[in-house]
């Protein structure tokens, strides 16, 4: 595939795919929550732009609506909500030490290669451009999961969750010029409700364990030893962050 031979729309989509993939990696290596949220908002902006480009080039009216919805939800509302939460919990000074960043990045890179490998069979039937776009969206989904595994703050989990949603949205825009309107509206509604529920959950988690560190949510186990674990948890709750972070640093 020679990129100069493609039309301008395809070139734009490919650059957007590259940028979206890049933002996922940036999020993965981010140890400060406010920056993480900023990068997430930026990814949302890239999505909005992709949608606008697709809407313009295919002259598809309903994609403009999706673009506005994405802008409102993923660039404004969700980042604003998360940022407010971070400031309220005073988490913006914390640096969450990621235990082995190199491994994490290598893991992320291999996930990207894996996405190309998984989707390679479809290259026989479609253009290589489509393969790139779909593989990048799948890797954004997988990188979002990796982000959730590697970070311990509930806020980072929400960012991971929403960035998975971004990856899916990108796939829908690029591969099929958007899903049918009713489905897009439904998905946007689900995302909105999910965001509101996350807000409610932050409140509940905070009141119950006095922290947003999900590692402290560890009461439910397969094995018994209930009593022992509860005692351990109690001591952990008294000292939610400091001790752990010292060790990791």
């Amino acid at each position: 595939m020679n990129i100069e031979l493609q039309d301008i729309y395809t070139q734009a989509i490919l650059s957007m795919a590259a940028l979206v993939g890049l933002t996922s990696f940036l999020m993965l290596g981010q140890s400060r929550l406010l920056r993480l949220i900023f990068v997430f908002a930026f990814q949302g902006l890239l999505l909005t732009m992709t949608t606008m480009v697709a809407a313009y080039s295919t002259d598809n009216q309903h994609l403009y609506i999706s673009a506005v919805l994405t802008l409102a939800l993923k660039v404004v509302f969700i980042p604003w909500m998360l940022r407010r939460e971070v400031l309220k919990m005073n988490l913006h000074r914390d640096i969450q030490a990621l235990s082995n960043q190199t491994t994490l990045m290598l893991g992320g890179a291999s996930l990207m290669v894996f996405s190309y490998y998984v989707l390679h069979p479809i290259v026989q039937t479609t253009s290589p451009v489509m393969l790139n776009a779909l593989a990048v969206s799948l890797s954004v989904v997988l990188l979002g999961m990796l982000l959730m595994i590697s970070h311990r703050q509930a806020i980072a989990h929400v960012v991971g969750f929403m960035s998975i949603e971004n990856g899916l949205f990108f796939a829908a825009i690029v591969a099929t010029n958007g899903m049918p309107m009713v489905v897009e509206l439904g998905v946007a509604f689900d995302v909105l409700v999910a965001a509101v529920l996350f807000g409610i959950f932050f409140f509940h988690i905070r009141t119950s364990i006095d922290s947003l560190d999900v590692d402290l949510l560890n009461r439910l186990h397969e094995v018994d030893e209930q009593g022992a674990r509860h005692d351990k948890n109690r001591s952990a709750v008294i000292n939610p962050h400091t001790a752990d972070y010292e060790v990791n640093r």
Binding site: A154, F201, H204, I205, S208, I209, V214, L217, N218, R219, L220
Partner: peptide, 10 residues
């Protein structure tokens, strides 16, 4: 709204 139920729901 017990800690366990919030964990389960999360």
């Amino acid at each position: 709204r017990t800690p366990e139920s919030i964990e389960a729901a999360w």
